[in-house]
Nucleic acid binder design. Structure first.
Lengths: 219, 219
DNA sequence: ATGTATAAACATACTTGCATGTTTGTTTAT
DNA sequence: ATAAACAAACATGCAAGTATGTTTATACAT
């Protein structure tokens, strides 16, 4: 039983509508993909009219760019929270890799795969997307740097290790679109964890004991 | 001055037409992407009529699947040739990684990225693509096995290392769509080479000298 | 060998359907 | 009252598949 909608300010109405549109856009990018989603689909899913959508966004392109920014900012926030948790309560490199995996498989990279072709072939779209992606990458760098400080490892090398891990996870998720083999991907994720743990260990003074399974944190 | 076309058999005519269509399809998947390429575009690029295309293929979907099979089979052949060269003349793990990179960046993975969304959202298409992708993966397994034999390393572990490398390269190429930074990707590719070299070395008897920079081959 | 029937190979034109952006009209807040 | 927010209907364009017509090769009979 939906109660009669209370009076909202224009700002609130706009914000609610835009939020619904951005959520619907991410949902549909994930479920149907960029090219199989029409502006009409987005409006329907968001529960607004085609006119409302075109009132707030000039084109489908702009809706999607805003939705991507929305999702990437949320992901950056989750990454910062992860780094903060490790700083305050400690954590293993395995946990970092698991976190990256869960973040990327939680729609983030599936959505990315959907708009990558448009990035490759639509210059205007690319120019807009690159702006928000750069913000995301800057966030990543900051987080790798924070982790390096926490692990007591070289920042540059740590960033390389983490960026490589990100790329491997990207490749795995992409491959999972056409390959259904949980064991295969389990093996690869474990391999990722081994590599990260080994690299992080190697960077520490030889005298220190291995800290793979719990690093840092306040005692 | 094109001389008057000589009389060809029906088989020759068909084969030539189909070949032109498949080449044009790969070209356009690379240049414009799956969703931005129409059947009309393919026919034009191939220099045949829309009718000819629809005579040989029931749908755009089928054209693309055939083109993918075409490209993956060519890639498998190149991989076998690489493995054969290493068997006969030797080669380093660095060279293997470089070969994988050149193979994947030589349109193979760019084309893959273009049709992945269709794989995710079109069941019929996925079922057809999975068949040809499985053939490719079987080829890969055979080649990793051949490399393991050549390097004298454990076959299962070597496959894991190589599959992880493939995934990392996939992720790098995908990221290159929105990130233009040669140094960044150079670093990551070098990191890949380090990991592969270290893993291969670790698998060998401790007494043997490092063979990273030239392994196997007939003396 | 030559002409003819037949089918494969190819070409052109058409039909249907949907996506996008726009325009015009209505409701809601200030 | 005025403008923002929203809704509905419209116009244009193109893609996919189809249907129908034309050319080219081949099998067969004479």
């Amino acid at each position: 039983m939906a109660e009669a909608r209370r009076r909202r300010t224009q700002q609130e109405r706009s914000a609610d509508t835009i939020d619904a549109i951005l959520r619907a856009t991410i949902d549909l990018l994930y479920e149907r993909g960029f090219y199989r989603t029409s502006a009409t689909d987005i409006a329907e899913r968001a529960g607004v009219s085609r006119g409302a959508l075109n009132h707030h966004f000039a084109s489908k392109e702009d809706v999607v760019v805003s939705a991507i920014r929305h999702q990437l900012q949320a992901s950056t926030a989750r990454l910062h929270a992860m780094a903060r948790t490790i700083r305050e309560r400690g954590g293993s490199t395995d946990e970092v890799v698991d976190f990256i995996w869960s973040l990327m498989t939680d729609r983030l990279y599936f959505v990315t795969m959907e708009y990558l072709p448009e990035v490759r072939h639509n210059r205007d779209f690319k120019d807009k997307v690159v702006v928000v992606v750069k913000e995301f990458h800057a966030g990543l760098e900051a987080i790798w740097s924070e982790l390096a400080e926490q692990f007591g490892t070289d920042a540059v090398r740590t960033a390389t290790v983490m960026n490589a891990t990100m790329c491997t996870v990207r490749g795995m998720i992409a491959q999972s679109a056409s390959k259904d083999d949980a064991r295969y991907f389990d093996d690869l994720l474990n391999y990722c964890k081994e590599q990260v743990a080994r690299e992080i260990d190697r960077m520490k003074p030889a005298s220190e004991p291995s800290r793979r399974h719990r690093v840092g944190g306040r005692p």
